[in-house]
Amino acid sequence: MPAIQEITDKLIRDNIQRAVHDVFKTMLGHQPDFVSASVQLAGVHTPAMPAAAENSHPSVVGTVGFLGDVNGLIYLYFDVAFARLATSQLLSMSDAELDDAGDEVVNDAIGELTNMTVGSFKNGLCDAGYPCKLTIPSILRGSNFCVEPISSAVRHTFYFNCAGHRVVTDILMKIGD
């Protein structure tokens, strides 16, 4: 298994930007704009999770992992309003229909958007020589929570603006074998 150090920041940045762009543009018809990025190296503790500031309001967070020559997890943060908007656009549902359908439909839609985004990111890694497979998606809901990586993980956080909402991708990748 190649060491994580071999995977450059540029490869990660290019892949996640392309993945977010392709998925949001194709499935929702919105062009996301990249805002900023931060990197937290393994073993370096920072007091707050990079995405924590975006998480003070209720959020819907999709998670999908990738396993293989490179292992990791990606969290995709949506505020509740954008999660609902994205679901209604993805499934051509009105607000009233969405209310009737409940959170389960929003969770499934955000899970699928995360799956597509992580899939697209992961396919870029595969084509660059790091074969890996996806895990099934899961959903976190709530506010003021934070996800802390284990000490051997590298964290890359990317911030996007899309349709007037903030979207955060938090990538945690495990180092070494």
């Binding site: 597509m116 890694l125 595969c126 084509d127 074969p131 497979k133």
Partner: peptide, 9 residues
């Protein structure tokens, strides 16, 4: 119809 799209896969 899948998100798994690496060349080898």
């Amino acid at each position: 119809l899948t998100a798994e799209g690496g060349r080898d896969h």
